[in-house]
Write a protein that binds this DNA or RNA. Structure first.
Lengths: 139, 139
DNA sequence: GCAATATAGTTGCGCTCTCAAACATTAATC
DNA sequence: GATTAATGTTTGAGAGCGCAACTATATTGC
């Protein structure tokens, strides 16, 4: 495999991502959240006790620690998440999903699924499985 | 194909993109440019007469018109690109690749290729072809 | 020919994110 | 058990980007 093709392939993946982001932003903004905020809600929703350390959250959504701080401030103000102290370690502040946050996530997740479906329409079931396998290999 | 899997697949593509961006930023910053600036240089390099309208450039790199304006200002100041008037239409300002810009692009493109190769190591030639086909379908 | 409309580009404003530094707390070392 | 190192979080400064509003030119319909 020549390097040129690998470069082209990388560029295609980036272009695809650009396309995906633009398709997602509209539907999600309807629920009052950005894509990154959707990711935060999802990680919290999937976490045990719907509670995470900020630094783990940062890693899972691909943000820096400071990025998480700044992202969570307005989310807390609006009541989607809430802050909580960790008993065993006074350095960490846990983030938990509120009831309102859970509701917003569930609504937004439906929209997310619709976009996912729309994006994937040009691929049949087999191709979607192939793509999942390939992305797993790359991650 | 259930919607849940399609959502998971979309999330994997986003995660992959995050990973790619982080691997690219280091090597490219070594050449003094960001990934978006690399894209601009590449589009200009590939363009006929290495010359483009700003709005076409915006579309090709996935930016807004104002994004292109702000991105090009420092690039012009540093001498990677230069501004040129269009004879037939006084509204458009063409962007052209300078000699220095071409040199920087060629150097950066080598680094880009190396990252592409590194990212794709976990895929054999056949899988890379499959991935190219699938991304083409999705774009 | 001229108003109405469309197109190319820039600018003001605001949002999101990162890096580096600062700060607080905990862990490790001796 | 005091010092040093490591860890979690926040903050200041600034880069990167979009949206809406604005300017300037071109095109269209009458």
């Amino acid at each position: 495999m020549p390097t040129a093709s690998q470069s082209e392939l990388l560029l295609k993946l980036v272009a695809l991502h650009t396309r995906i982001q633009k398709q997602l932003s509209g539907p999600l903004s309807f629920h009052g959240i950005s894509f990154t905020e959707y990711l935060v809600l999802k990680q919290l929703h999937d976490a045990p006790a719907q509670k995470l350390r900020r630094i783990d959250l940062a890693q899972q959504v691909g943000l820096s620690a400071s990025g998480v701080t700044r992202l969570l401030n307005p989310m807390e103000k609006v009541g989607l998440v809430s802050k909580e102290e960790a008993a065993r370690d006074a350095r960490v502040s846990l983030v938990t999903l509120t009831g309102a946050g859970k509701t917003v996530f569930q609504d937004a997740d439906v929209s997310f699924g619709q976009v996912a479906k729309a994006v994937m329409t040009s691929l049949d079931g087999e191709d979607q499985k192939h793509l999942a396998r390939l992305t797993d290999l790359l991650l």
